[in-house]
Simulated scan of single mutants.
Amino acid sequence: MKPLIVLLSVFCISLLVTKLFWNNYEFALSGRIAMSVMLIFTAVAHFAFTKGMAMMLPDFIPYKIEMVYLTGIIEIAFAAGLFIPDLKIISAWLLIIFFILILPSNIYASIKQIDYQKETFDGNGLGYLWFRIPLQILFIVWTYLAVIKSEIII
């Protein structure tokens, strides 16, 4: 829920700022800014709640702590990549793939009722997937529209 609030809040603020300073709503730019801030926000959790996030990974995945750190760094790299002209399209496609690849860990965490912030097994459970799966789809569509489709139109 928090990443969605960050995404939408930053998007609205960015739209207002672009209207104020450029007298035009910059939807694609605001979308990239919002996605980048959301990625930084979620990346911070990888470093603040490392052990709990490692619990979200199935037993067959080795080096769980390192994987959590790596995915946090990847999120930061994507956040930056969305603003580098020569890298933003490839960053967007890789980010979409990343969103697809991390969905199983969210499903696993829901099945196991993992609360990554408390490092316990009393999380939201399977009901959380009714929110998380559409949220993941929103992130994918958002990235496509804010970066890839906006570049096709321009």
Rank of each mutant, 00 (worst) to 15 (best):
L4G: 12
I5L: 15
L7I: 00
L8C: 13
L8W: 06
L8M: 12
S9Q: 10
V10D: 07
I13W: 09
I13A: 14
L15Q: 13
L15N: 05
L16I: 07
L16H: 10
T18I: 10
K19H: 13
L20G: 09
F21W: 14
F21A: 15
W22Q: 15
N23M: 13
E26H: 13
E26F: 05
A28N: 00
R32Q: 12
R32G: 00
A34Y: 00
M35K: 00
V37A: 01
I40D: 00
I40R: 02
A43G: 08
V44W: 09
A45L: 06
A45S: 11
A48E: 12
A48I: 02
A48Y: 10
G52M: 04
A54F: 03
A54R: 03
M55N: 02
M55W: 01
L57H: 03
D59Y: 08
F60H: 13
F60C: 03
P62H: 12
K64T: 11
M67E: 10
M67C: 09
V68N: 10
Y69A: 02
Y69G: 07
Y69Q: 07
L70R: 06
T71K: 09
T71I: 14
G72T: 12
I73P: 00
I76W: 01
I76Y: 06
A77P: 07
F78Y: 10
A80F: 15
I84L: 15
P85H: 12
K88I: 01
S91Y: 04
W93Q: 08
L94C: 14
L95V: 04
L95G: 06
I96N: 10
I96G: 06
I97Q: 02
I97A: 15
F98W: 08
L103W: 12
L103T: 15
S105M: 13
Y108E: 10
A109V: 07
S110N: 10
S110G: 14
K112C: 12
K112V: 04
K112T: 09
I114F: 05
I114W: 08
D115H: 01
Y116K: 07
K118M: 06
T120C: 06
D122H: 14
G125T: 09
G125F: 06
L126C: 03
L126R: 11
G127A: 05
Y128I: 02
L129I: 01
W130A: 14
W130L: 14
F131L: 13
F131T: 05
R132W: 04
R132D: 12
R132T: 06
Q136V: 09
I137G: 05
I137Q: 08
L138G: 01
I140N: 12
V141Q: 02
L145Y: 03
V147P: 01
S150L: 02
E151A: 03
E151F: 01
E151C: 00
E151T: 07
I152Q: 02
I153F: 03
I154W: 05
